[in-house]
Design a protein around this nucleic acid. Structure first.
Lengths: 119, 119
DNA sequence: GGTTTGCTCAACCGCAAGGTTGAACAAGGA
DNA sequence: TCCTTGTTCAACCTTGCGGTTGAGCAAACC
């Protein structure tokens, strides 16, 4: 868990943390406020927030005794870029495979080598 | 770690597994083949593949003794949908905040309440 | 039938993650 | 100054993860 991408994916692997992100997308919130709907201690929520913060998903300011939590949307780009890259690559490969299959279909020829189990 | 989204994020939180996905985006591969570049046992790689498979990121067929691993790109949609949803929501909120600030700026008026530290 | 190849299962180990409780700290309010 | 509110720190417990080794299994090869 060294690089940021690992931290972000790992942070979002937890349903409670994903739910927090979902709620923070609507409005900033304090720790107690965030903890309210969950059946865990405030300390546990504080830990979750630390994880989100270290992943860069969230930032915190100070407002009297409160530490409002704010969602940082930029990090999402890191993930989408990674995902899209390999998705595209995989789909491209799929497309090429389709081409090959289509070509094999058009050149229906007795010499066509079907013995290698390319299906 | 019950729902699929958790499984997918969790699976991709590991750098080795991400690298495997990256390589599988280029071409299908067997377990030994996949294990080759890493400094871990084949069994460890087999475990990683199980994680990827249970997340739906990968599927396996049978070809003689080999169990070729194939990347399944559809699951990526699950993630991007989740990410985009909240990213958009957060950005929308940001946009509205800008509107509010802009409005506060245009109505530069002695009665404007700047004492609440909205900056 | 026995061996090699490719892979998985089982048991174990060390460590980090997520939870708890109890104490501490920081900033307002009485 | 003392109390209350909001949050974090510290110590601890249990569970799960990533790694290991050793055995087992399935399919091809000799």
């Amino acid at each position: 868990m060294d690089d940021q991408l690992s931290r972000v994916f790992s942070a979002l692997a937890d349903p409670t943390r994903r739910d927090m992100v979902a709620r923070l997308a609507v409005a900033d919130a304090g720790v107690n406020e965030l903890a309210e709907p969950y059946d865990v201690s405030v300390q546990a929520v504080s830990k979750h927030l630390k994880v989100l913060e270290e992943a860069g998903l969230v930032s915190r300011s100070r407002q009297a005794q409160r530490r409002p939590v704010h969602l940082e949307a930029e990090v999402f780009d890191l993930m989408t870029k990674w995902i899209e890259r390999y998705r595209r690559q995989a789909e491209e490969r799929y497309r090429r495979l389709d081409d090959v299959l289509a070509e094999m279909d058009t050149e229906k020829d007795p010499r066509t080598d079907t013995a290698r189990g390319a299906s």
